[in-house]
């Protein structure tokens, strides 16, 4: 006779009236957002990979000058900004649902979600700041590392 874990539910379901009613369309919009952002991200990410790694001279062209040249154009600024925001919200929402599904103890769930949202804020704020305040021609840098338009200006 071997002893095994208690077969009872990990958390015995509370009586129903205690359920917090959270009706509203948040979960619905979240679900729709995951599908929509997923489709857009497929285009954005594969476009990004193609332009960076395949088009032109391919992977050997990537250096500071290449990235700086891209971010000098508002088109790539908006492309990368969209990619950053959509990927971060999509990923954070996905991890949030996983935490909701698998973290049973309230304290653990709270801690995990707090660190998740903190990581989200740090990455999004930092990334957005870099995209908009990026200086493609920092003063006093060797000209051969900078994009071509820095010397002409």
């Amino acid at each position: 006779m071997t002893t095994i874990a208690d077969p009872k539910a990990p958390r015995p379901p509370k009586p129903r009236p205690a359920r917090l009613t959270t009706r509203g369309n948040t979960e619905l919009y979240g679900w729709v957002f995951m599908r929509a952002s997923g489709v857009i991200l497929v285009v954005l990410i594969f476009g990004h990979l193609f332009v960076n790694l395949v088009a032109g001279e391919g992977i050997s062209a990537i250096d500071f000058g290449f990235v700086a040249g891209k971010w000098a154009s508002p088109f790539w600024q908006i492309w990368d900004l969209l990619m950053l925001w959509l990927a971060m919200i999509h990923g954070t929402n996905g991890v949030r649902t996983i935490i909701n599904d698998y973290a049973e103890r309230d304290g653990v769930r709270l801690a995990l979600k707090a660190s998740l949202y903190l990581a989200f804020v740090v990455v999004v704020v930092l990334g957005t700041l870099v995209i908009f305040t990026f200086d493609p021609c920092p003063a006093g840098s060797p000209a051969d590392l900078l994009p071509s338009f820095c010397t002409t200006a």
């Binding site: 359920r19 959270t22 009706r23 509203g24 369309n25 979960e27 979240g30 679900w31 909701n100 599904d101």
Partner: peptide
């Protein structure tokens, strides 16, 4: 539909 739109409703289906 209103009842099943709950946080613990159909959207938890994986």
């Amino acid at each position: 539909l209103e009842i099943l739109n709950d946080k613990e409703g159909v959207w938890r289906c994986r």
